[in-house]
């Protein structure tokens, strides 16, 4: 099985510094389990008994989150994802991030990836700031010789000082945000995925975070942002993908799609 080791290596050698993302007829169905379907005992019992009982167990609920999505993103694209809640924006980002695999359809992606999906979740409240940083560096597979450099960078960016030696459950939410944001923006990847970031933090930090994020998004090959604020989309993106109930509703230049989107939205409150 020696050849298996060379898969990452081959990917690295073939890297032509051109990021690209292809989705072809991608569907994503989320299974919704309830009650006994979560139970091994219930499932085994149902095999044996069969018949009447089995009917409600076989009734598998599926939520179709993405419905035959076919899009291509190329190097230089700045994609804005818009659509109502539950339109499939986050699911699409998870597909591109390689976290979920499509239920059907083809997906290929070239280029290194950073998905700033969920900020707080990789932190452990019982561990100190430094321990969390160490763990994140291990998780991200950062080489040991770059650790001290990155640690400096994090210390300067977060300005948390001695708090880094305390368990992060003692942090305020703003302080936690600083740390997780610093950790999520360690790398300069080819593809950046953002799922509604700026949530908390005081004004000075927000400016700093914006500058740091901008540096990363400006230097990356492909940027995908899901956002509800059209102003942000217009500022960051040159193309917009409008999702409606898991389907591609419009995909085109920012001006035309945002204008159309705003036009339909404006009718709703006036009813």
């Amino acid at each position: 099985m020696g050849h298996l080791y060379f898969i990452p290596l081959a990917c690295a050698l073939l890297d032509l510094n051109m990021a690209s993302v292809f989705l072809d007829q991608v569907c994503v169905d989320f299974p919704v389990y309830y009650g006994r379907q979560r139970s091994l005992r219930g499932t085994l019992l149902h095999w044996k008994i069969g018949g009447v009982l089995s009917r409600d167990l076989d009734n598998q609920f599926m939520v179709r989150s993405l419905d035959h999505v076919t899009v291509q993103f190329h190097d230089g694209d700045r994609i804005g994802l818009i659509g109502d809640n539950g339109a499939g924006k986050s699911t699409l980002i998870r597909i591109i991030a390689g976290i979920l695999e499509p239920t059907s359809g083809e997906f290929t992606c070239q280029g290194s990836l950073a998905s700033i999906l969920t900020l707080a979740t990789i932190l452990d409240g019982e561990m100190t700031g430094y321990e969390n940083i160490n763990r994140a560096l291990v998780l991200l597979g950062v080489a040991k010789n770059r650790w001290s450099h990155l640690l400096n960078d994090i210390e300067q960016f977060t300005e948390l000082g001695d708090f880094l030696s305390l368990p992060i459950k003692t942090y305020s939410s703003g302080m936690q945000l600083r740390l997780s944001f610093a950790l999520m923006t360690l790398h300069q990847p080819d593809i950046v995925l953002l799922d509604e970031v700026f949530a908390a933090g005081d004004a000075t930090f927000r400016d700093k975070a914006k500058a740091r994020l901008e540096k990363i998004t400006n230097n990356c090959g492909i940027l995908v942002v899901a956002h509800h604020a059209m102003a942000e989309i217009q500022r960051l993106c040159n193309k917009v993908l409008w999702l409606e109930r898991g389907k591609v509703h419009r995909f085109g230049s920012t001006e035309s799609v945002v204008a159309e989107y705003l036009a339909t939205r404006r009718q709703v409150p006036s009813e």
Partner: peptide, 22 residues
């Protein structure tokens, strides 16, 4: 893809040994 998962997992031995140790 299962092969790739195994290959990448073995190649990332630093990650799982490091995490287990931590």
């Amino acid at each position: 893809r299962a092969n790739t998962d195994l290959g990448n997992a073995l190649a990332a031995w630093r990650i799982w040994i490091g995490l287990g140790w931590q």
